[in-house]
Simulated scan of single mutants.
Amino acid sequence: MTVNLPNLTDIERTGLEYAKDITERVVATFVVTACGVGVAAGPADMFHASFWETMAAAGLAAAGSLIKGVLARPFGTKNSASFVRGAWCGARRPVSRRRAFLVVTGIGWSLYGGLGIVGQPRYGTARGLADVIKYVPLDALGWMWVALGLVAALAGLVVNCPRMQALGFAALGVPAGLWAGAFAEGAATTYPSAVGSACGWGAFTVGVVLVSGMDDPLPPHLRKRGR
């Protein structure tokens, strides 16, 4: 009698694919929920929700997605967090550094807008943006950061869609470019101390443009083996 045991490499690969799948689902649920609550509580004016209430609602939705993914594994495909069998194609997808950059930086942009502008605005920020906030309230600018950051993070979760990635990089570049221009104008006129912020945000903007033009590395099986 022969007992066929699964290969350890296959088990590791299945576990890695499952971890990638459930992580992407949980992050996507968090980002989409935060976008929905932010739009409903902000521009749509359906109800009031603070930044932390928005993050808490998104966290609860993400926790629900995590629990569902864990419960689904015994019933669905082993390398998928879905209850539907065969939902995972089984092909290994290389990690996209461009998409990871969109997700990480987009979340950072949202936290900066929610915590650093809406929640605890600094005097230097308000002073450097004096010419801008004459026309647009600082809170509105903060929510702009939150919304565009979430757009970028959501674009980073979309697979095989260069147009969505281009939209995500534009969402990262617009607020950083606005900050760079506003601080540069303030440094040249009434607030010389803003020159450091102008340089920093200018470098951020250039960095976003550079990363947007980079290509993801080829999958391992298409790379040339070193001699």
Rank of each mutant, 00 (worst) to 15 (best):
W143P: 00
G173R: 02
F169D: 03
L150S: 12
N160Q: 09
A153E: 03
W143L: 06
A153R: 05
L157I: 03
V174D: 06
V174Y: 10
V159M: 06
G149V: 07
G149L: 10
A152E: 01
L167R: 12
C161G: 05
F169G: 01
W143D: 07
G124P: 02
A130D: 09
R127C: 04
G173P: 00
G149Y: 08
V146S: 01
A171P: 01
W143T: 01
Y123K: 13
D131P: 02
G124I: 11
P137E: 00
N160S: 10
Q120T: 13
R127P: 03
V151W: 12
P121K: 12
C161R: 15
V158S: 04
A171T: 05
A166R: 14
L167G: 05
I133R: 12
P162W: 10
C161V: 08
L138A: 13
L141W: 15
A166S: 11
L148E: 08
C161N: 15
D139K: 06
G149D: 05
R163S: 10
C161A: 15
L138V: 12
A170V: 11
M144E: 06
Q165H: 00
L148G: 10
G168E: 04
V136I: 14
D139H: 07
K134N: 06
T125S: 13
V146G: 01
C161Q: 14
V159W: 02
Y123L: 11
A140H: 08
A153L: 07
L157G: 09
N160C: 07
A166K: 13
L167D: 03
G119A: 01
L154F: 15
L129N: 11
Y123A: 13
L141E: 09
A166N: 04
Q120G: 07
G128E: 03
V158M: 11
V136N: 06
F169C: 02
V159N: 06
L172K: 03
V136Q: 04
C161P: 05
R122M: 14
A130K: 11
C161I: 02
A170N: 02
W143Q: 07
P137T: 01
L129T: 11
M144Y: 12
L172T: 01
Y135I: 10
A152R: 03
L172W: 00
G168R: 02
L129S: 09
Y135P: 00
W143C: 05
T125Y: 14
L167Q: 07
L172F: 00
G156M: 04
A166I: 10
A155C: 14
N160M: 08
A126E: 15
G173Q: 03
L141K: 12
F169W: 00
D139F: 07
Y135R: 07
A126L: 14
R122N: 11
Q120W: 03
Y135E: 08
A170M: 12
V146C: 02
G119W: 06
T125I: 13
N160P: 00
V151C: 14
R122D: 14
R122E: 15
L141M: 15
V132L: 15
T125L: 15
P137F: 07
W145D: 13
A126G: 12
P137H: 01
L141R: 13
G173I: 01
C161L: 10
G128K: 04
A166D: 01
W145V: 10
V132M: 14
L141S: 11
G156I: 02
R163Q: 12
L129Y: 12
P121T: 05
V159G: 00
L148R: 11
V174G: 06
A130T: 07
V151G: 12
R127I: 09
T125K: 08
G173D: 04
C161S: 13
L138H: 14
Y135K: 06
L129D: 09
